[in-house]
């Protein structure tokens, strides 16, 4: 009986740790080893190394106390449930949703938005881990096909997101250089290299040109995103303040409720997009 119970316990324990691998061999091995180790207390109770003394005890050795293991077992059960819940609800889903939303916003906003490098990093780690796990599956296994397809989809998402940002960095290079806060460290390196390769030589060339070209300064070469451009926006929350739309000499105030959709100038909702209260659609 003890064998059976101890076989289940590590399975739960390892089940919660290796729930993604589904590696049954490891489970079975662990069960065997742990169950055997527990029987070592026979020797402890008998205070002798002889097998005979160990198998003919008059009382139960300390580690064979069932109630202790039952309590531990139920604790493990509860905690493994919690761990799984945590993984599904706040691990994969939220990060993926955040990246998807950031991707759409980045695609639709005129300016470059604050980076989400920490989310990307978490997702890349998950992808790496998942890739290792998938390697252990057989290639023809249906699950392997689905996993591979999901990895491809997420990689596409991340690639497209980063590429959109790089496009904006190249287009608005000098303007972005003045507003570096939105860039991730890697993007900043890219921007600096891009500037030294593109803008600096252009300026050198202009310096030698006669006429108006010779007097060009960096400010004139700068391309700034047009924040007055219009966007389609959807609010994720009831906004506490009204937003102000400048229309020539007039100013208009609008209240925005949760889930309402509007066409508005980007400049009016810029702050809300940057802190994720409004998303672009």
């Amino acid at each position: 009986m003890s064998w059976k119970m101890f076989r289940q316990f590590p399975q739960l324990l390892s089940g919660s740790v290796y729930s993604l691998t589904g590696n049954r061999l490891l489970d079975i091995g662990l069960c065997g080893i742990i169950a055997s180790i527990i029987d070592l207390d026979h020797f402890y109770a008998a205070r002798s190394f002889s097998l005979k003394a160990a198998t003919s005890l008059d009382r139960r050795p300390p580690l064979h106390c069932t109630s202790f293991w039952l309590v531990l077992l139920s604790l493990a059960l509860v905690s493994s449930k919690n761990i799984n819940f945590y993984n599904v609800e706040s691990g994969g889903n939220v990060v993926l949703d955040t990246i998807t939303e950031a991707w759409v916003n980045e695609k639709l906003s005129p300016e470059i938005l604050p980076h989400k490098a920490d989310f990307i990093e978490v997702m890349m780690e998950q992808i790496d881990q998942m890739e290792e796990n998938v390697l252990q599956l057989q290639k023809t296994d249906l699950r392997s096909i689905i996993h591979r397809q999901e990895l491809e989809r997420i990689r596409y998402l991340i690639r497209s997101y980063l590429r959109t940002r790089l496009d904006k960095i190249e287009l608005y290079s000098l303007w972005v250089f003045k507003n570096q806060g939105v860039l991730s460290p890697q993007e900043l390196v890219y921007l600096k290299e891009y500037l030294s390769l593109s803008v600096a030589p252009l300026k050198n060339l202009c310096d030698r040109m006669p006429g108006p070209c010779g007097q060009i300064n960096p400010r004139q070469m700068e391309i700034a995103p047009d924040l007055e451009t219009h966007v389609f926006a959807k609010s994720k929350v009831d906004l506490p303040d009204t937003i102000i739309v400048n229309d020539g000499p007039r100013e208009e105030e609008i209240t925005i409720n949760k889930d309402s959709q509007r066409i508005v100038p980007y400049a009016s909702i810029r702050e809300y997009v940057r802190n994720n209260q409004i998303k672009l659609i």
């Binding site: 219009h230 389609f232 739309v245 400048n246 229309d247 208009e252 609008i254 889930d259 309402s260 959709q261 509007r262 066409i263 508005v264 100038p265 009016s268």
Partner: peptide, 9 residues
């Protein structure tokens, strides 16, 4: 005007 509601689009 520069803004318009487009709910449910």
């Amino acid at each position: 005007g520069r803004h318009a509601g487009i709910d449910y689009l």
